[in-house]
Each structure stands twice: as structure tokens, then as C-alpha cells.
Write a protein that binds this DNA or RNA. Sequence first.
DNA 1: AATCGTGAGTAAGTATTACTTACCCGACTA
DNA 2: TAGTCGGGTAAGTAATACTTACTCACGATT
Lengths: 194, 194
Amino acid sequence: MTQHQPPGKIKILKALSLLLEQHNFNAITTALIAKEAGVTEGLIYKYFKDKKDLLFELLGENITLFNQALTAKLNKKNTAVEKLKIFITTTTKAYLKNRVFGRILLLEVRNTPEYFKSSAHATMTALETSIHDIILDGIKNGELRKDIDSRVLLKTMVGAIEHAILDAIIFNQEINAPAVTSHINEIIFKGVEP
Amino acid sequence: MTQHQPPGKIKILKALSLLLEQHNFNAITTALIAKEAGVTEGLIYKYFKDKKDLLFELLGENITLFNQALTAKLNKKNTAVEKLKIFITTTTKAYLKNRVFGRILLLEVRNTPEYFKSSAHATMTALETSIHDIILDGIKNGELRKDIDSRVLLKTMVGAIEHAILDAIIFNQEINAPAVTSHINEIIFKGVEP
DNA sequence: AATCGTGAGTAAGTATTACTTACCCGACTA
DNA sequence: TAGTCGGGTAAGTAATACTTACTCACGATT
């Protein structure tokens, strides 16, 4: 995926990736990216429509990689419930391990309407669709209650994951990922009433 | 709250409020705000630290109003479970009724670190704390399972609400709020396993 | 062997826009 | 009546995302 791309483009992507470790996207100027990459500012616009497009491409690469890793893990599980639980734990761990991309995905791209037209977002949607299919299977084969709404369950899982880790990402807190994910699983699968 | 404030300041707040109905915050220039308000650009900086501060003040007013309305509703309910359910339905309905502020709160302010230092965010945190207290009560008096994590439950509820309505807000879709909230309630309180 | 086309990159703008600085004016007030 | 102060204006300025016009190396084509 990063092959067959001109060296300048790779240098720009790597420069932004590096800068994002230290600054948030808005604070990173095109001049700084160019300087860090060792190219001129104009070159950015040879390879990217605009500054956001550059971010979306970087984000898209990482989401694609995550999607592949997740799919591999899902394929190792047989039941819908096992798959959904591994989705929760894998996603949570990935956000916490790769906090920079967590921050970008959960906080820094959603305010731009263009993101929702990007291929990065399309990959996220595809990922969610495959989880939704797992839920539908689970309902069909009796692993999950027939009367739950599959879309709402999907969104509840995604929302639970995001908000469980959001403070950790925003305020750079430590967090006990296994404990958090097992608590989410308990709540969603067993409910909170005794 | 809007009293005792100079007319120019009120005009500026109203102008931004109006413009946000049609454009997202980044697309609204200070020049446009000033023109809409019928004042000069410089006056904005007499009353607000910067453009974001103006947005945060507007948002803060609305969050405070919502917080009061929610508290009134919570006080009418007696059990923790009833309170938590009314929290879910009231919050969901409020987001959908006031989509502009939903969009701002869920999508447009979280990418700026300053938001998390604003009084708007402080009010949100206070609101979440009061919900957390309700959860703690529920656990104490046996309405909720002793072995759930109260913070994770709080975040699961908040995340479930947000993601249930996010697509509706982003893509301006219609949504059946009572159906969605009752599905969230079912999932969280009863669990998804049969 | 000369030429042509093209991919890769540069250099020097320009327009926009958030924000600043210096000033004005009318109405209380001492 | 002089002073001061809240409310407001006008004309900047610096930063910065993006554009435009150009250069150069090099492999293919005739």
C-alpha cells in the first residue's frame, strides 16, 4: 500500500505521523510538515487535495490495518457472542495502544464534514457492517435475544467502547483495559439489573 | 443569565446561534458573525477571548438549561432505574430536538483542547457526576447488580445515547426516538443474552 | 542521437481570516 | 466642568492554507 508511491509523498506522510505524536492536527502547519519532511510546501498539494486529505489518507491506512487484524481475530472465534466480545476487547486495546490514532479518530476528524466522505470513514463503516452481520447471526441462531434491535446494539457497543476510553485519551490517563472490557461485556451481555 | 449583558454581546451570541443553523462552526468567519450581528469584528474580542470562547459560551448556556430541565425530571422519579431510564430518554430527545447543539457538542468542540477547560464542559461533567451518583445509589440499594462497574456503566449509557443518534445528526436522518431509547434501555438493563 | 513527455520537485506568490491596536463618543459623576 | 468608563469603531497585521508558474532529470520514441 505504501509501495509505488513517490518518495516525497512517503516523506510527507511520515512527517505528519511523527508530528501528530506531539501536536494536535490543527496546530500542525503545512510549513511545519514540509520542513519535517524535507520538502517544499507546494509538494503537499501535488499529492493531497488539501491538508485534511493528507490526514484522512494517513488515518485510512491505519484503519485498514486494524480492520485486517480484527477480521483475523474474529475468524478464529465461532460463536457470535465470542466474536462480539473479541471485537470489544480488540478495539479497546487498539485505541489505548495507539492513542494518537484514537485521538484523531474520536476527536479530531469528526468535526469536518469531509471526513464522512473519506475512504477512511468508509472503512470504518464497513467494519461496523461486519459487526452488525455478526449480531444478526447471533439473533438468528438464538445466541442473542430475538427482541433486541441489532443496530442499537451495534451502536451501544461502539459507544460504550469509545466513552470508556475517551477520558484516558483526552487526559492521557492510564487505564486497565482488560478490566474495562470485561465490565462492558458484563453490562451489555448480562444487563445491569440483578 | 443573558441579562445585564451589553446589547452588542447579546447580538453577537444571537448572530452565531443563527449562523450555526446553516453552517458548521469552522465555516463561520468572524467577519460574517459581525455582519450578521450588525457590529464590527473588533467588538467580538471585547467580550470573548477568541472565536472558540464565543462558541463555548453559547454552548454553555444551552447545556446549563438542559441540565436544569433534566434535574427537574430526575427529581420526579424515585428509583435509580427509573431515573437512569429518564436520563436516557430525555438526553436522546434533547439531542434530536436541538440538533444544532447536538452537532456542536458531539462533533464540533471535542477537537479543541480548550473545550475541556471551558465551563460548558465543566457543566457536562457535573451532569455526568450526578448520573454516576444515581448509579451508586442503585447499586447500594440493590436495584442494580453489585458487581458492575459504576463508571463503565455511566460511560456505556452516555456512549450508547451518542452513537444511537450520531448518524441522525451527521446525515440529518429522521429517527424514532421512543423506539431507540426503549431499545437502549432493554439492552443495558436486561442484557442481550436470552 | 535528438527530442519529447512526464513524474517529481521547487520557489514565490496570494487571499483569507483570526486577532490587535489605537481611537471615538456619550453619559454619569465628583 | 473635567474626568472616567462602558460600549463601540476602524484600520491594520501576522499567520497560514493553498495556487501558479517554473525547473530538472530521465526513459521512451522516432
